[in-house]
Design a protein around this nucleic acid. Structure first.
Lengths: 190, 190, 190, 190
DNA sequence: GATGAATGAGCGTTCATTCAT
DNA sequence: GATGAATGAACGCTCATTCAT
């Protein structure tokens, strides 16, 4: 039975994600992707233009997943400031629950690959979040600083802490997660 | 005329820093280091065991510089909470003023290179900072959360914002820098 | 049209044999193997793990050929002492007729490459010969000295003389070959 | 106090001998000779034209030593066939007692280095031996075969067995040594 | 769609040799 | 005599990519 977007294609993406998470871009060779995906070199080049194309596609998929996770549970219907706490926890938990994806993202966003993509992707996936923050600034609920600053004071901290948890450098229980979310809120609250 | 610690050696380190900042580890080939440093391949291997050894040495140098910059101006003699604001600003300004070093660090700390080093280096260079934070926790001045969390809520934010400034995505004037430092302080203050 | 066991693979082995015979291991570079075999560097590494692997494989092939040549004509069915004369002549003629293989063997067996292999290979290819000698010792037909000694007094001499003939230092006609074989027999005969 | 032919020069030759015996020509780099000899690269090139020149010089020294050892005890004054037995034992014992020199010789004589040298050196160092064999052939005491053949039937066997003893593959006690010498004599005796 | 043998430019590294001091 | 920093051509090997089947 045929599949809508090919088992092989998914196997290639999945193998690449695993490999990059554990070996980095440099250590992820096409030969390794061939072995782990079960697809031949020729097949990989049938579905993707190049190794870089696989990586860019993977980035797009993961960003999409992350955007969905962030806005799950309709946070924009929660009262102030619960929606910010909710989003912070969603972000932290997404990263903590997806170590391979997180290790991929941190590598992608700190590499030559990313330079052409970054801003574009930020806008596309975070549009709803950005809108929410704008609204809260206008209402005088949070301090009037550039969006990038607000992002780093809140979700940026979530990413960094999730990375450390994945690396085994610390573990945040649910209670502490909420405490940190509240600390971030204090930082940006007027 | 003889030089202390060899001109060639410094030229190699400097060329490598520039190249990695603009092309990444992978894009920084020995051939490029040869061209930019003015040293031959043989000479490079006279001073360093391998390409990795150059990179590790560069990391050590930069971390040392950063540690010095952070503790410049004797922040531990300033009254609460000025010392934290002072350190935050020192960190941000160091990163913002050293774009190549910052781009290098972000790549190093997100790569296989770093895995063996990270915690050790953190302790060595940040000992004074860590001590300061411990003291403030004990005095009940800042919230009682793991040090890693406090780090990400404060200096972690400085790094991230400096990276964005280097990337040209925003510019923080001195006034705004202080506002962000104060926002970070609100996050960790009891 | 497909070939059994790949033309390229054989071309690589053959080119390597020729090159080592005339230039030694050190002088046989991968670039030269590429030129003489008609295979690209990548193809060579598709069939062999390393330059050393080519050399070890070549050794195995040649030893196999030699073992076959030695036992050709069913010498163990000949009466005493004709079977020893027969084997001696087979050995000498194999070496004399295969100068490249002989030059290869002499280099392989006097190099770090061989250290792990030598004894093992001796047993494997010479099993029948060893058995024959044992039998003749037990029957009191040849002197009771260690096998290695008996080997050097007989086939070892054949190798050395063949090497000299290949080097053009002397030429043994059929008559003289038999005389030398008989001299060797006198050495080991009780 | 000055030395007749420089300590450094001897240190270089000795270090090279040790290194080649245990690592071969390929594994003996100039850097290693620098370390083990205590002479700097510059000094080595003051005494020798090239790495090959060191090796050729070493060969000449060892051949000279060997020639001396072979003719020690004035074998040409011993009665037939004791002088041949005596020379055979001298040869075997020289090799067995000088493992580094023997390992060096076997590598030298199986390498591109040797091709230009071999015959010349044979004549020079073995002149006395050759003369002795000639005399014995004329007297009808030994078989009339080319000198090279007689060499391989006698001293050639001594070399090969000494190599095996050095490699730890067998050990010949004094009694057995004499038995083998006598076996070689039987091979060449009329 | 799928294969995998074949490619070759380019990689990090080595090492015999030189020469200013 | 002696040094050792400097050289650079050449080494063994890798790997993203292609294409005949």
């Amino acid at each position: 039975m045929a599949t809508s977007s090919s088992d092989k294609r998914n196997a290639i993406l999945h193998a690449t994600l695993e490999l990059i998470a554990e070996r980095g871009f440099r250590g992820t060779t096409m030969a390794l992707i061939v072995q782990h995906s079960g697809a031949s070199a020729g097949t990989i080049y049938h579905y993707f233009e190049s190794k870089d194309a696989i990586i860019h596609e993977l980035y797009r998929c993961i960003k999409r997943q992350f955007g969905v996770a962030l806005m799950a549970g309709n946070p924009n219907q929660l009262p102030w400031p619960d929606h910010l706490i909710h989003i912070w926890l969603s972000a932290f938990r997404f990263y903590a629950a997806h170590p391979m994806e997180t290790r991929f993202l941190e590598q992608y966003e700190n590499s030559p690959y990313q330079i052409n993509w970054y801003e574009h992707e930020l806008d596309e996936h975070m549009a709803a979040l950005v809108q929410m923050l704008h609204r809260d600034i206008e209402r005088g609920l949070i301090i009037n600083l550039p969006l990038e600053v607000l992002y780093e004071l809140t979700l940026g901290v979530a990413v960094s802490l999730a990375k450390r948890q994945i690396a085994g450098m610390l573990t945040l229980d649910e209670r502490t997660q909420t405490e940190v979310a509240e600390a971030c809120l204090r930082a940006v609250k007027r």
